[in-house]
Design a binder for these strands. Structure first.
Length: 619
DNA sequence: GCAAGGTC
C-alpha cells in the first residue's frame, strides 16, 4: 500500500512527515529547491492500514487562468468578448516542476491524501493537486486531512480520520478566480486603451482595474475629499480650575463645546451667578487596561507601520522570513485565539534566555501566567502569530528583522500576562446648571505593560480629596476659544482597518493591494511631519475615482460594495446555498451593464482626467 | 501590458 500525501507548502509537509514518520523519515530532493519529498512508513489504521508514505507539497496554487492566445491583442479584441471567452486553466510556469513531481509520485500510489490548509483556498488547491495526480494515475483515491494546527496528537488523530475535499469551497474559489480574471482584463484594457489615446502623459501607463485595488484607491480618495472639504469652525468651551493641596485641577465642561460665542457667554454668566460650585459626585472605581489579543496577520500589518515605521508589505515579508527560519509561527493567519491545547508554557520557557524580556518570561512561569484572551476569529488553519524559538539580535539578518521578531514576541508575552490594573477617580462639579468633571488615574499594577511598550497607559496621578456636597469657589472660570482642526490623510493602519471591515482582500493580500495602487501611481505615500506616513491620491487616482462617480453607476467601481457583496455570495457557495455557475453568470451580467455604461459615458472619465491631470496641474 | 489568491 502506497499513500501520497500533499501539503500546501513545504513547512507543513516537513512537520507532518516528522510527526507521522516518528524520526524514521528519509528526505529526497526534488527539482524545486523549496520542495522536498519525505518517505516513511505509517499505520493509518482503518481501511488503509500500514502504508509506504511519501509526503510532499506544492507551493500555493498550481494553476492559473488565461485566455486562448487569439484574445491576447489588446487593440484588436473588443473587450466585451472577454465576458464569454473560453478560459484556459493550466499549471503556471513556475509550478511545472511541482506538478511533475506529483505526477511521478502519484503513479504507484493507491491513495492521494490531501494536506492543504483547511481554508477555502486550501480546498481549491486540493482539487488542483487531484487533477494533476489523476493525469498519471486516474484510479487514485482521494481523501483529505482535517487539521488546524501542527500538534502531534492532533495530526495523528487527523491522519486516521480523513474526510472528503469540499467541492463547494473549491467552487467558491473557482468563481472568484474567473470573475477577478475576466473583470480585471476587461476593465483594465478598456481604461488603459481609451485613456492612453486621449492623454499623452498616460501613454506608457497601465491603468489597471482590480476589484480590490480600486476600492483601496477609493478609501484614499474619500479621505482626501474630507480633508479638501474641511472648513475650520470656531468653537467655545468653559474651563474651571480649582487649586488645592498645591495641585491645579482642571475641570472640563460636560457640554464639551458650543459653536456659538454668545451661547458660551450665557452659560458662563449662569455659572457666575451661582457663585460657588458644588461637588456632586466623587466616584472611585478600580479600572484596568486589557492586554492585547493574540496576534493575527491584519493586526501585525497594522502594527508594523504604526510602531516600527515599516510598511505593511515589508512587515509581512520580514515575518515570512522569520517564519522560514523557524523563529516565529506561520504569519498568515486570521486566528486571534490560542487553542486550549497549545503548550504556551513551553514557548515562554524558550524565551527566558533573552536579556530584553527573559526576566519577564521567567516571572510568567513562576506564577504570573494568565490564559490569553480570545478574539472572535478562528480560521481553523493556523494559530495566532507567536514566537517558536529564541534568537539573539545579532543572529538575525537585519535590525528590522529583529524589530518584527521583538514585536511578535512581546505581543505573545503580553497575551500571557495579567491585564494592567489601575484606580480611577471621577469628580463632578455642578455650578448653576452646568456640570464639570475631571478624571484621575493611578496605575497600580503595570503587568503586561512592562513587556509591551507599544501600549501606553499614562496615569494622571492622584487627585486631591473632594467630598460630595462640598462647595468650592473656583480659582478660575472662563471661556476658551478654539478652532476645529482638519482631519488628516489616511494612514496605513487606518487603510488596512477599512479594507478589513469591508472585506477587501485577505489578511495576506491587503499589503499587496496597497503596494499595487502605489505602483500604478494612483496613490502616493507621503511622510508626515514627525515620521508617520500617510496616503494621498495622485491626480490620476482622484481623476479615476471622480470620473467613475460621474458615470452614475449604482455602485461606483471605487466603492467597496461590489466586492463585499461578492464575498457574501462566495460564502453562500461555500455553504452549499448557491450554485457556482449561477453566481458567475449573475455577476458577469451585472458587470456587463457596468461595462456598457462606462463605455458609453467614458467622457466622464476623460473630462475628469482633463481636469485633474491637466487643468488643475497647470497652476 | 490585465486580477487576486496561494507561496519562497
Amino acid at each position: 500500500m502506497r499513500v501520497l500525501c500533499v501539503a500546501e507548502k513545504n513547512s507543513i509537509a516537513k512537520s507532518v512527515a516528522n510527526i507521522l514518520g516518528g524520526g524514521q523519515v528519509k528526505r529526497r530532493d526534488t527539482k524545486s529547491k523549496y520542495i522536498k519529498n519525505y518517505d516513511f512508513t505509517f499505520d493509518f489504521g482503518g481501511y488503509i492500514g500500514t502504508a509506504q508514505v511519501t509526503m510532499t507539497s506544492v507551493s500555493g496554487h498550481l494553476t492559473e487562468a488565461s485566455f486562448p492566445s487569439e484574445y491576447n491583442s489588446w487593440s484588436s479584441v473588443p473587450q466585451d468578448i472577454l465576458f464569454d471567452a473560453r478560459i484556459i486553466t493550466s499549471v503556471s510556469k513556475n509550478a511545472n516542476v511541482l506538478a511533475d513531481n506529483i505526477k511521478k509520485e502519484a503513479r504507484n500510489a493507491t491513495y492521494l491524501y490531501i494536506w492543504t490548509d483547511c481554508d477555502r483556498e486550501g480546498e481549491h488547491i486540493g482539487m488542483e493537486i487531484t487533477n494533476v495526480a489523476r493525469i498519471s494515475n486516474p484510479q487514485i483515491r482521494v481523501i483529505r486531512a482535517d487539521f488546524n494546527n501542527l500538534e502531534r496528537k492532533h495530526i495523528i488523530q487527523a491522519s486516521k480520520r480523513p474526510r472528503e475535499l469540499s467541492k463547494d469551497a473549491a467552487d467558491a474559489v473557482s468563481a472568484r478566480i474567473e470573475l477577478d480574471f475576466r473583470l480585471g482584463a476587461i476593465f483594465t484594457r478598456l481604461q488603459t486603451l481609451q485613456l492612453q489615446r486621449a492623454f499623452e502623459i498616460l501613454q506608457s501607463k497601465v491603468i489597471s482595474y482590480g476589484p480590490c485595488q480600486f476600492p483601496t484607491l477609493g478609501f484614499v480618495v474619500d479621505r482626501w475629499q474630507r480633508v479638501e472639504d474641511f472648513v475650520p469652525e470656531n468653537f467655545w468651551s468653559l474651563k474651571l480650575v480649582d487649586k488645592r493641596e498645591r495641585q491645579t485641577v482642571n475641570f472640563t465642561w460636560k457640554r464639551n463645546r458650543v459653536y456659538d460665542r454668545l451661547a458660551a457667554i450665557l452659560f458662563l454668566e449662569h455659572c457666575l451667578d451661582a457663585k460657588v460650585a458644588k461637588v456632586v459626585k466623587v466616584n472611585q472605581k478600580p479600572t484596568r487596561r486589557y492586554k492585547p489579543l493574540p496576534l493575527s496577520t491584519v493586526e501585525l500589518t497594522k502594527m508594523g507601520p504604526k510602531f516600527l515605521r515599516i510598511s505593511s508589505k515589508k512587515t509581512l515579508e520580514l515575518a515570512e522570513s522569520l517564519y522560514t527560519n523557524g523563529f516565529v509561527s506561520y504569519p498568515r493567519t486570521e486566528t486571534d485565539q490560542f487553542d486550549s491545547g497549545m503548550d504556551l508554557h513551553g514557548i515562554i520557557g524558550k524565551l527566558t534566555p533573552s536579556e530584553d524580556w527573559g526576566t519577564f518570561a521567567q516571572g510568567l512561569l513562576d506564577g504570573n501566567f494568565r490564559i490569553p484572551r480570545k478574539g472572535k476569529h478562528n480560521d481553523r488553519a493556523h494559530p495566532p502569530i507567536h514566537p517558536i524559538s529564541f534568537v539573539h539580535r545579532s543572529a538575525l539578518q537585519s535590525q528590522d528583522h529583529w524589530r518584527v521578531y521583538e514585536l511578535i514576541t512581546r505581543r505573545f508575552l503580553a497575551c500571557c500576562s495579567e491585564n494592567a490594573i489601575g484606580a480611577e477617580t471621577i469628580i463632578e462639579l455642578q455650578m448653576g446648571d452646568e456640570l464639570f468633571s475631571q478624571k484621575g488615574l493611578i496605575i497600580l499594577e503595570r503587568n503586561y505593560l512592562d513587556v509591551y511598550p507599544y501600549d501606553k497607559w499614562t496615569g494622571t496621578g492622584q487627585l486631591p480629596a473632594y467630598q460630595v456636597g462640598e462647595e468650592i469657589m473656583p480659582n478660575m472660570l472662563n471661556i476658551i476659544d478654539s478652532v476645529t482642526t482638519s482631519p488628516s490623510y489616511l494612514t496605513e493602519p487606518e487603510l488596512i482597518a477599512l479594507m478589513d471591515v469591508n472585506g477587501i482582500g485577505t489578511d495576506a493580500t491587503m499589503a499587496d493591494h496597497i503596494e499595487k495602487v502605489q505602483e500604478r501611481e494612483y496613490v502616493v505615500k507621503r511622510k508626515k511631519r514627525g515620521a508617520a506616513t500617510e496616503f494621498v491620491p495622485s491626480s490620476l487616482g482622484i481623476a479615476l475615482a471622480k470620473g467613475y462617480d460621474e458615470i452614475g453607476l449604482e455602485w461606483s467601481l471605487t466603492k467597496p460594495f461590489l466586492r463585499k457583496e461578492m464575498e457574501v455570495q462566495l460564502k453562500n457557495i461555500e455553504t452549499g446555498h448557491l450554485d457556482r455557475d449561477a453566481l458567475v453568470q449573475m455577476t458577469l451580467s451585472q458587470f456587463r451593464d457596468v461595462f456598457h455604461l462606462t463605455k458609453q459615458r467614458f467622457d466622464c472619465l476623460k473630462n475628469s482626467c482633463r481636469l485633474y491631470l491637466i487643468e488643475l496641474n497647470e497652476g
